[in-house]
């Protein structure tokens, strides 16, 4: 008994030392149960966000107003499915199957980013998602490339590399609208007005209310606090909005010389919590559609499995 406890202590010390030394933890290394659980929760939520995030943009693939834009949007939405796959793979290294994770998504036991519960009402929303939503996601994700868990960090490196075009295409799309006809400009402004605040909410609750933050930072799963990243994002967006010729819908947004940052108005956390609770404009549609796709596809997955069972050794 004494030796087991001792061995556990040695393992824990090795884990702590590896994290402290900025080494990566790999799948077969010993890790605390809570570390594993935190990673599964976070990676799954991230993967779910990628695949639910397909829907608001796929909503415009068939209506894209030029063939160039259609190709770009298709490629982008395809990347999101790919990124979902990279992330489910990373989660699977922790011993949970994709089916189990999808089941938890479909039954509401795991979450996805609330941002995707907002509707895409116009073509400009595709641009606003690229610029603001992907921009916020990238701000969040770049530090994750140095996350202490190896497979997650590697997936993020790949995703960040591929996503660099996502934000630029959104920005370029909005620029074309902003500099286009009056109606197009209005469409762009309307989209930014609707997406700005939800994008700021993507960084999560303020630091003093964030339940998981402190431990995640100690484990180097997370490298910066929610408020720190949110501030970074606001500072990046202000000059970009100016260059677009669009305004950000916040009368309190002003440069603070002393802090060296922009001050911004209060975020409506009631809305955030309500959307999180399931009362957003599209929560039911998003999950409903995902579940339907999964159920409608069951016979296809079964057929392929049955075929493989019949012809198993044929050509492996």
């Amino acid at each position: 008994m004494a030796t087991t406890v001792e061995a556990g202590g040695v393992r824990e010390a090795a884990f702590d030392a590896a994290v402290a030394a900025d080494e990566r933890i790999e799948p077969r290394d010993w890790m605390p149960d809570a570390y594993r659980a935190t990673l599964v929760r976070q990676i799954a939520q991230h993967a779910h966000s990628e695949i639910i995030g397909i829907q608001p943009e796929a909503n415009w693939i068939t209506r894209a107003p030029s063939l160039r834009r259609k190709a770009i949007l298709m490629a982008k939405v395809q990347d999101e499915a790919g990124h979902g796959l990279y992330l489910y793979s990373a989660a699977e290294t922790l011993g949970v199957g994709r089916d189990e994770l999808l089941d938890k998504l479909h039954t509401g036991r795991q979450k996805y980013s609330s941002i995707f519960n907002y509707p895409t009402l116009t073509w400009a929303d595709v641009g606003a998602i690229g610029w603001l939503v992907d921009g916020a996601a990238i701000t969040n994700q770049v530090p994750l490339c140095r996350c202490s868990y190896g497979p997650y960090a590697r997936a993020m490196v790949r995703i960040c590399k591929e996503e660099s075009f996502h934000q630029r295409q959104g920005y370029e799309l909005l620029l074309a609208l902003s500099q286009g006809t009056e109606a197009q400009h209005a469409m762009a402004q309307d989209a930014v007005d609707r997406w700005w605040w939800p994008s700021l909410m993507m960084f999560g609750p303020p630091d003093d209310e964030s339940s998981h933050s402190a431990q995640s930072m100690a484990w180097k799963i997370k490298r910066h606090s929610n408020d720190e990243l949110r501030q970074r994002f606001v500072d990046i967006c202000v000059p970009q909005a100016e260059a677009l010729g669009l305004t950000l819908p916040d009368p309190d947004l002003v440069w603070n010389e002393e802090r060296g940052h922009h001050d911004f108005g209060p975020i409506d956390w009631d809305e955030f919590r309500e959307v999180l609770r399931g009362n957003g404009p599209c929560n039911d549609e998003r999950i409903g559609r995902r579940r339907r796709a999964h159920e409608d596809g069951a016979w296809v997955r079964e057929a392929a499995a049955a075929y493989a069972a019949k012809h198993g050794e044929a050509k492996a």
Partner: peptide
């Protein structure tokens, strides 16, 4: 094929169908 986005029977297949759609769109253009 673009209508399949978000409706595929399995994620891997959404990626495959999108690849095909993108090839076709390139040919069309």
């Amino acid at each position: 094929l673009g209508e399949w986005a978000g409706h595929g029977p399995v994620l891997e297949e959404e990626v495959a169908l999108a690849n095909i759609a993108l090839d076709l769109l390139g040919q069309a253009r």
